Structure formats: C-alpha cells, structure tokens
Computed example of a mutant assay.
Amino acid sequence: MRKVSFTEFGGPDVLHLVDAEEPHAGPGRIRITVRAAGVNPVDWRIREGQKLGAHPIELPSGVGQDAAGVVDEIGEGVEDVRVGDHVFGEGFSTYAEFAVLSAWARIPEGLTFEEAAGYPSVVETALRVIREVGAQSGQTLLVSGASGGVGSAVLQIARDRGITVIGTAGVANQDYLRSLGALPTTYGEGWVERVRQLGHVDAALDLAGSGVIRELVELAGNPRKVISIADLGAPELGVRFSGVAGSVPQALAVAADLISRGKLHIPVEKSYTLAEAAAAHIDSQRGHTRGRRVIVP
C-alpha cells in the first residue's frame, strides 16, 4: 500500500510517499480502507520533532491520526462494527491507503468521508479545553484563533452549552465566526480593546500560538483561566499547555450526537492527495484556515 512517511524530523520536505506493508488489526482494533484523513497541527508538530507530552516517536514514522473509511478487518474482541461499515475515528499513520484505528464510531447519516475525517481530534480537543478552562453556561469564553478546526468545534459546542464566545480571526473569517454564533473581532493592533468592548471575559483559549498569552491572561484576569494548545512557552507565564488527549470514544459519541442534531458542522476548506501531504502541512502551518483540511488517498 502507499503511505506518507518520514525518516528524520524536519520541515515538510522530509515527508515522502512510500510503498509499505499493510497494517493489520490487533485485538480491540479495526482496520479501514482510508477514504479521507484529517490534517491536524499536531501532525506537523510531531514531524518537526516537537515534544508534546505524547509517546516518543520511532523513526521511520507514518503521519496522521484522524481518518474516515470503510471497515475491512476487525480485531479480536471488537463487536460493535462489521466489515463494510462506514466509520470515523483515531489511529496512527492515517495518511495511507489502509490504517488501524484504536477508537471509532459510525459516520452520522449525511456526512461525507471527507467531512467525517475532520472531526475526531478537533472535537476531542475542543471538549477537553472547554472542560479544563472551566467555562460554564452564562459565562463568556474568549477564543484566540477561532476559525480553524478546533475553534469551529469550540464555538459550536460552547453555543450548545449556553456559553457566549468572543472569537478572534482574520478579516476574511469574521462572517464565518458570526455564522457559528460567536462575537467576532480581528486580531492585530488594538485587539485587546476591541475584545473589551464586546464584553467581560471569564476564560480564554489560545488555539493559534500567535504570542498572545500575556494579553489573554490580562483579559481573563488569572493565568488559571487560560488554556493553550499551541504555545509551548505558555507554562512560563503560568498558563497550562493542554496536549494530552482525553477519551476519544466519548468525544466521537458527543460529535455524532451534535452532528445528528444539527448542532455541529465543520466545513472542509481543502482536500489533498497523499502526494500533496507536504503542501497540506505548509498550508496548515500558515494558519488562517476556515474549518478543516483533509488528505484523500
């Protein structure tokens, strides 16, 4: 089969499309024919060799953790799916024609493979950071970098829970944030004052790593009311860096419920082939994403 792999840490140019042996589903796992794989910032952070609190990466390594596809192999002990089922979930080396998943759920009706591949990690992350920052119904949550995949999920989950969201994004994404129920404003010079004009901030999330931790602490009033998933230097300012995943099966169940109720939709901004994985990483690192990017084998 074909898969994307790298033999050394570095820039996008270390990614190569290679021929590899097909993986197989061990106990408690399933294998899918990959129809689409989600592109996440964690993918290129791992490729660069960043220390994210996860297990050490052994080289050569595959790329990707989110995918959607068709079940074609079931490991011992798995009883909730059958060969031929359409599922989305999380595994490893998902930029490939086949991938083994460790967590999965059936794709909600009406969702394409490309759309489904964009949900697993972003919904888990969104649920985790909302929980960790302690945002409650009736409060206001500030989200820096609100238009990407995680931001899109945070805004919609928060709205469903009665949390008001102020979101920062580029000029081109203001209407997009508004469509998700947020109070939008642009980043750049004067953004702190623009946020203050929109309302009091009870808690804040840094999703973009754009060097605004000090300002988020100032607006939230306490570093314990700020969480970052993108700035590795955040702990130096007393802010927690959240990088350890919670329950992915639970997150998939929540995602499926929200999608089925029409409360969550994350658009696919762009699709790439396996051979275009490096381009997908370059675009992801540039930011300014509206929704998700996916790899389609």
Rank of each mutant, 00 (worst) to 15 (best):
M1I: 03
R2A: 06
R2K: 15
R2T: 04
S5K: 10
F6Q: 01
T7W: 11
T7C: 05
D13M: 08
V14R: 07
V14Y: 06
V14H: 05
V14E: 05
L17C: 09
V18C: 05
E22A: 15
P23S: 07
G26F: 12
G26T: 12
G28L: 08
R31V: 01
I32G: 06
I32F: 11
A36F: 00
A37M: 04
G38W: 09
V39Y: 12
P41Y: 01
D43Y: 02
R45Y: 13
R45S: 12
E48Q: 14
L52P: 00
G53Y: 00
P56Y: 11
V63G: 10
A67H: 06
A68E: 01
A68M: 03
G69Y: 07
I74P: 01
I74V: 15
V78M: 04
V78L: 09
R82Q: 13
D85L: 04
S93W: 09
A96D: 02
F98V: 11
V100R: 09
S102Q: 14
A105E: 12
P108Q: 06
T112R: 10
T112D: 10
G118M: 01
S121M: 14
S121H: 10
V122T: 14
E124P: 03
T125H: 09
A126W: 07
R128I: 04
Q136N: 12
S137C: 02
S137H: 04
L141C: 10
A146H: 00
A146I: 02
S147N: 08
G148W: 08
G148N: 08
G149C: 03
G149Y: 02
V154L: 07
V154S: 08
L155Q: 05
I157V: 03
I163H: 06
V165M: 03
G167D: 09
G167H: 09
T168N: 05
T168F: 09
A172M: 11
D175A: 11
Y176H: 00
R178Y: 02
S179Q: 10
L180P: 02
G181C: 03
G181Y: 03
A182D: 04
T186S: 14
Y187H: 15
G188L: 13
G190L: 10
G190Q: 08
W191N: 02
R194S: 10
H200W: 11
D202H: 14
D202C: 02
A203T: 09
L205K: 00
A208S: 14
S210V: 12
E215G: 06
L219F: 00
A220T: 01
K225S: 12
V226P: 11
I227W: 01
I227A: 02
I229Q: 04
I229R: 09
A230G: 08
P235Q: 05
G238D: 08
R240P: 08
R240Y: 00
S242W: 07
V248I: 15
A253S: 13
D257F: 06
D257V: 04
L258K: 14
I259H: 02
R261A: 10
I266M: 07
K270W: 06
T273P: 05
L274T: 01
A275Q: 12
E276Q: 15
A278D: 06
A278W: 07
H281K: 00
D283G: 04
D283P: 05
T289K: 14
R290L: 07
R292G: 12
V294N: 10
I295Q: 03
P297E: 01
